[in-house]
Design a protein around this nucleic acid. Structure first.
Lengths: 249, 249
DNA sequence: TTTAAATTTGCCGTTTAGTGCAAGATATTT
DNA sequence: AAATATCTTGCACTAAACGGCAAATTTAAA
């Protein structure tokens, strides 16, 4: 077997599976592991793949991690935000939660749409304050450093004094059986207040989060009026949610 | 499983849920918790996430927002902010106003200084939320689009319920005769509330603003306890302020 | 074709990286 | 203050990487 041919096979495997083990390749090509190692080393120096301890990974795989430093799964979140926009009418009064998906929603609000938006999230408030036709009201409180949102009793109390048409919320975890759950107790209290302050609650949630759960429960799945994922409403993954009284979008 | 692959998965989980437990990850990846810990430690040092006790959290927006490099008279404002810092003691409770000078103050707060900071300003809140030892409390209200601060009755009311050691405020205009004045009526109302909420009020003001005035009056110059400019306290330009009972810094 | 040089490959001993385990130190919760 | 969880550190074990060497293969030249 020619060296060139072998290296091509290695590249193929890497592109196909995003990663390979040197030992696997050595076996399938029936050459010594040293040979494979040398090949991979060479391909690495030619920038055709990246060699790591024990194997190699595709370049595309790593650069996606670099993109991740911006926003994870941005395309999906943008799609969700676009669907959410369709619910908004001129003059609506809404609440926008924190998190990257809701931030994306804030970002996509059309320049000419007149809205009143409540939020707890500093980044969302910053984003919305650039929209001339949006009245932004920030729910004050102690600022959580992780999420950059207001938390605590003050925030919850302030929420108790408002009523909005729609709340657009995210969640840490969601499951058709266990409902919405979170990592933090504080956040659960806050989300409960948000849901209570809304005539209708809209959950924005990328499909990757479906069927996951955690320690603290925000609400039953029935508490959600509309659930938006990046999937088509008739998608098979949403089957377990269709039995509930939820509008899928 | 390759180390790289594992770290990628960890990043995914962190981005997805904003927060993860080391034990959860160890279980889903079927590796020891030590390995996960080491991975997370490594990712932390690469600035891809933040390690916390027991888990990791997404950097999200915490990466301090791209610093606006074209702030007018930045050098002067930095100097003022540095002087203001000398007033702060461990455990102080302060208010930080909006404006670029106060933002600079927020930026320069040492990483190890423990403080409680109230603010009306979104950018100041964002900046402060990156300081681990600062408790940030945002005074909510309607957001003014120009200044990115809370304004209105709600904000004023919230201010009426607090008392801080120091208020660090800016002003549109200042004059030794006419005191502090502003262009906007709303802002004046707000600043009055801020001054009332403080045991001591510190004015941060570049010398260029000295001896200027406008339509609406915030307060007499006597209402200010300490005035900080970029000039030395004995500078001739500050002569007219020396007759008052103000501490010049 | 034969021979010599250069390259490639496999093998082996040594060195290094990655992983899991366990004991003691810190943090966090009750 | 006690109990629990998490972190740190050091250690042992394994897998992988490295470098040198020699056999095998290819290439180039006589």
């Amino acid at each position: 077997m020619l060296k060139e041919e072998r290296q091509q096979t290695i590249l193929n495997e890497v592109e196909l599976h995003n990663r390979i083990l040197l030992t696997d390749i050595a076996e399938t090509l029936d050459v010594s592991i040293d040979t494979v190692r040398r090949d991979v080393k060479e391909l690495d120096s030619e920038q055709k793949l990246r060699k790591v301890h024990g194997g190699a990974i595709s370049l595309g795989f790593t650069t996606s991690s670099a993109r991740n430093t911006n926003i994870y799964a941005l395309a999906e979140k943008t799609k969700i935000a676009e669907k959410a926009l369709s619910l908004l009418k001129e003059g609506s009064v809404i609440f926008v939660d924190g998190g990257t998906t809701c931030l994306e929603l804030a970002r996509l609000i059309p320049i000419d749409l007149e809205l009143t938006c409540f939020t707890l999230s500093l980044p969302v408030a910053m984003e919305l304050s650039s929209k001339p036709n949006v009245t932004v009201i920030f729910i004050g409180g102690q600022i959580s450093k992780d999420a950059q949102i207001s938390i605590g009793a003050n925030a919850i109390h302030n929420l108790s004094e408002i009523k909005v048409d729609y709340s657009f919320i995210g969640t840490g975890y969601v499951d058709s059986q266990y409902g919405l759950t979170e990592f933090d107790w504080d956040i659960v209290q806050l989300k409960k207040a948000v849901i209570k302050a809304a005539k209708k609650t809209v959950l924005l949630c990328i499909s990757e989060k479906l069927n996951s759960q955690h320690r603290y429960k925000t609400c039953d799945i029935n508490a959600i009026n509309t659930m938006i994922t990046e999937l088509a409403p008739e998608n098979e993954m949403l089957k377990s949610f269709r039995t509930h009284d939820i509008h899928l979008l």
